[in-house]
Amino acid sequence: MIALLTRDLKLAMRAGGGFGLGLAFFLIVVTLVPFGVGPQSDLLSKIAPGILWLGALLACLLSLDRVFALDWEDGSLDLLATSPLPMEGIVTIKALAHWLTTGLPLVLAAPLFGLLLSLPTPGYAPLVLSLLLGTPALSVIGTFGAALTVGLKRGGLLLSLLVLPLYVPTLIFGAEMARRGVEGLDTTTPLLMLAGITCGTIALLPFASAAVLKVNLR
């Protein structure tokens, strides 16, 4: 399992896709927003948590079709399926690798981008914490979507259509927590809900993803 994880990470590094692309996309979204809504810093600071959450979500989405696609094309996914590893384990590792290459860099870069959007000082800790808690759920849900569309030629658009509605609860609680942090309100409730969703998806969704992947490999 660890060998699979390191292999995936190495591949992501070498292809230069995962790490750089997601972050660059995030940066572009953050840069474009002021062009769209105007440079007033009070407006920006108000919408900053939402923008950062949306940017992270879209950056996550962007890299999802790569989760299984390469392994599917060169047949290593079939090899993995016949290996003694349970499919649920493979799926979880894939999600973890996706999170390490896209989610984690986004979390680390978020304070910097918050600066660009003049995020108020009390907002930083809740923002980073909410992203840290929420992005694993995004990766796990996204892996489910990627497993659904793995065999399809033009799965990219369909993947977004399938995955985005599933992102709604995570986005709501994550952005709510970040917003409450900015306004200096109590963040406990959204924090607990967000953590609950993340734990629930990590615990249960790999079974669905594995089932779907097995169907697709049949």
């Binding site: 509605p165 709604v168 609860p169 709501i172 809900m193 969703i197």
Partner: peptide, 11 residues
């Protein structure tokens, strides 16, 4: 997730 969204949206 639809059920979750329902409650999340309420909140």
């Amino acid at each position: 997730f639809a059920l979750l969204s329902r409650y999340a949206v309420n909140f």
